[in-house]
Write a protein that binds this DNA or RNA. Structure first.
Lengths: 227, 227
DNA sequence: GTCTATACACAGATAGAC
DNA sequence: GTCTATCTGTGTATAGAC
């Protein structure tokens, strides 16, 4: 499966995330009409990404956001209770989305090698599809409350465990070499993260998602495969 | 060479960086006595790291910094012209330090494999020795001016080239397999970065720098070595 | 060199008209 | 639902005494 197929199969867009945010935070929002809310949330998230990409969330003022979205300050506060809460809402939604998709893709295959490939690919492809969300989640994790930051660590450990479990299972079946599977999982995660953290580099070097993914898989397989 | 030996051989500390900062920015600082300046710069940098680790540079106020250093606001402004300039000074110094050390270690060995090992090790060990500097440089790069951000990209490409040059040379000598050496260099950098970006994970998992470094080397060699 | 006191801009947030 | 106008706290930075 390449990125194009993935995109077709997993037909989701930023608007779906916006809708999920609305449905989950309906009580706390003063907006009642779903379509209005989803459209404007989408506009807000896009604006947040565009403003914070170059200067971070703390440096973004509500007036920046108002200017970029074309909505007034008063209107913005009808969509979320405050600036900190907006950050928390976005982070929570992003985490839920990643967790859901990865588990879905891990359960498609049974054989360890096919499973490993599927999970690694799904993560990179997903980070390409929702690149701003991934970048934002990583870079702004520090600005969360301690509980929020714990949640970030927790999902990091969770996705690492998905990988290391596959490696352990594969070793038992004689497919993978023995090794420190936790550490291998860390390295895989490091390479995956590279894709959305340093996107400027790969744009410049004209390296596609598919090329990048194949290279990660080659390195991992070169290291893990028995025989 | 393990981390202990590296530390002994490369006998430098945060205070050396503070001294270098003083010598380079002497004209712009209102402080004239070297020892006073170095001691207080050291205190300032430590405070910056400790405050920004959990909330980022933008969220650190000058009052936070005053409280943490025990120096008054007025005193702080005798050491740097403004908050933005302090950030720029720290980033510039960190880049100069990394560049210097890596080139030093790349020139010790001639054989490609030994050279590759030395450079990879030196980078990870250096990031361990000056961990707060590395973490800070990465996380706060966005808050720089466009020129500052270009400088960050430039050093990233420079260190990548040191690695890919070694790989090309090794391929010519038949030591390394053919491959996309630029991409391999990117993967190596991703793994190195993992060490200082997610330090909490390795502290928790009780994995030492030496273990981590050996694992990176094993993965790289497994993928690159011919035969 | 370091302090205290203060200037002044801009932040997040809300009230109430439409 | 969205707007404008405004409140109030906090930010960076400086002046001038010691």
């Amino acid at each position: 499966m390449d990125y194009k197929e993935f995109k077709k199969q997993y037909a989701a867009s930023g608007r779906d995330i916006s809708r999920a945010v609305f449905l989950k935070n309906q009580e706390v929002m003063r907006i009642k009409r779903e379509e209005t809310a989803v459209t404007n949330l989408d506009k807000i998230f896009e604006a947040v990404f565009s403003i914070t990409y170059n200067k971070g969330y703390q440096a973004m003022s509500m007036r920046d956001l108002s200017l970029k979205t074309g909505m007034s300050l008063g209107a913005l506060y009808a969509y979320f209770p405050g600036k900190d809460e907006l950050l928390a809402i976005m982070q929570t939604q992003a985490r839920a989305m990643v967790k859901g998709v990865l588990e879905e893709f891990a359960n498609v295959h049974k054989a360890p090698l096919a499973k490993l490939r599927a999970v690694i690919k799904a993560h990179i492809f997903l980070s390409e599809l929702f690149r701003p969300w991934f970048y934002f989640t990583f870079m702004e994790a520090r600005n969360l409350t301690p509980q929020g930051f714990e949640a970030v660590k927790s999902i990091e450990e969770h996705t690492q465990k998905i990988l290391s479990d596959i490696l352990v299972q594969g070793e038992e079946q004689g497919v993978f070499k023995p090794g420190n599977h936790e550490l291998t999982a860390c390295m895989i995660k490091a390479m995956q993260q590279e894709w959305y953290l340093k996107r400027w580099k790969y744009t410049k070097q004209k390296i596609s998602v598919d090329q990048f993914t194949d290279y990660v898989l080659a390195m991992v397989e070169g290291f893990c495969l028995a025989g």
